[in-house]
Simulated scan of single mutants.
Amino acid sequence: MISVRRILVILAVAFTAYLAARGLWWTEPIPYPAIVVTTLGFYLVSTWLCIWWDPGAHDAARHSRQLPVWACVIALADAVIVPSAVAVGVGAASRTESFATWYLGGIGALMTIVMVRRRPWIAWIGIAALGIASMVWMGPPAALALGLVGSVVWVALAQLLVMSTDRAAADTEHLAQLQRAASAWQASQTVRQRERRVQVQRALATAGPVLARTIATSGMLTDAERADARLAEGSLRDELRGGRLLDDVVRAELDAARRRGAHVTMLDEGGLEALDDASLGLIRAELASTLRDASSERLYIRTSPHDSVAVTVVGRSGSGQGLSDEDAVDLWREIALPPRD
C-alpha cells in the first residue's frame, strides 16, 4: 500500500526535476553550457539525497527524520554555488530568462525540503544565500519579481506546517497518555468493585447466620451465640480495615486469638499498595506466625508507610496499673518489607 509519505516524496522528486529541466530549455545560445548542465546535475543529486536519505527507515524506534549534517552542508553549497554558476554559464544577456532563473524556485524547493527535514536554521541561511546571490546577479527588483518571494513563502509555510504537525503529535501523545490513565483507573475501579463484592460475600457468610439467629430469637442469644457474634464482628472489622493483610491462615489465627479471649485491632494505614502477591504472601505468613505465638490480652496490628517496615504488631497485657505504658507492652514485632528486585 502506498503511504502518504511516499506520495509526497514522489511529488517532491517530480517537482524538483521539473524545475531543473527548465534550465535545459535554452531559447538562445549560452556561453558555457557545460557549467549549466553540471550545475543541474549537482542540484538534482544533492536535492534527491535530501529527499530520499533516511537511515532510520528500518529502525523500529523510528527516530526523528532530521537531515544529517553532511546533507545540510551540501544543501548550503547548492544555495551558494548554483545561482552564481548558472549566472556565469548563461551569460549576462540571459540572466533574467526563464531557463536562467529556474534556480530561484529550485533552491527554494530544496530549502523547503530542508525545513521539512527539521533543519530550520539551515533552511533560512540557504534562503538568505539565495537572496543575496540572485540580487547580486540580476538585481533586487528582478529577483523579487521572478521567484525569490515565492521561495521565501514556501519555506515559511513549511516551517508553520512542521510546527503545527509537532504540536498535533504532542497533543495526540498527551491524549494517548490520558486514555491510558483513564483505562488504568477504570481497571483499578473494576478490581476494587470485585474486591468489595468478595468482601460483602464473605461478610454475609460470616455474619449472616448470627444475624439470622439474632432476628429469630429477638436478640435473646445464649452465651455461646453472643461469643460467636463478637467473633463475627471482629472478622468483619478485619475485612474492612486490613484486607491486604488477610488470607485464610491469618484469618484462622485471628479467630484463634479472639477465641482465647484476646482483643484484636487491625488497621491498614497504607504502605502495601505497590507490593505484589508474592511479597504480600511473605508478610502474611510472618504475621500468622507472630499471632500463633502471641499470648497478649490486646493485639494491635498496623501497616506502616515506613520504607523498611511493612507491619507492626504490638501486644499488651495486664491493666497497666502501677506500670508504665512501656512496661505493659509484652510483644513488639516489626515485619520488614521483602527486598525488591
Rank of each mutant, 00 (worst) to 15 (best):
L144S: 05
Q199G: 04
M220W: 12
L157S: 06
W154N: 06
M220H: 12
T214V: 07
A176W: 02
R237A: 09
V153H: 08
A129V: 08
Q201I: 04
A129R: 03
S164L: 12
R194H: 14
L221E: 02
V136W: 13
R241L: 15
G139F: 05
A142K: 08
G219E: 10
V198P: 00
T190M: 10
R167G: 00
I132P: 01
A123E: 01
W185L: 15
V152Y: 07
G139P: 05
R192M: 12
D166W: 03
A229P: 02
V155A: 04
A128Y: 11
T217N: 13
A182P: 02
A143V: 06
I132V: 14
A181G: 11
A133H: 07
G219P: 14
L130P: 01
L221W: 06
R230T: 02
Q186A: 14
L236E: 08
S134M: 08
P209G: 06
L211M: 12
Q193W: 07
T172E: 04
H174R: 11
S151Y: 01
A156S: 13
T217G: 00
E233T: 11
T190N: 02
G150A: 10
E195D: 10
D223Y: 03
R202Y: 01
A123P: 06
P209K: 11
A156K: 02
I125Y: 10
S188K: 09
E195K: 08
V200K: 08
L240D: 00
I125P: 01
R180T: 14
A205Y: 03
D166I: 02
T217H: 11
T222S: 15
A128L: 13
T206H: 14
L160D: 02
R194V: 11
W137R: 09
P209Y: 04
S151D: 01
Q199F: 00
W124M: 10
V198L: 15
R244M: 10
I125W: 14
P141I: 07
A169C: 01
S218L: 14
L221K: 08
D166M: 03
G243V: 09
S218T: 12
A224N: 09
A184H: 10
L161C: 07
T217I: 01
I215K: 04
Q179G: 03
Q177L: 08
V155C: 05
W154P: 02
R226G: 00
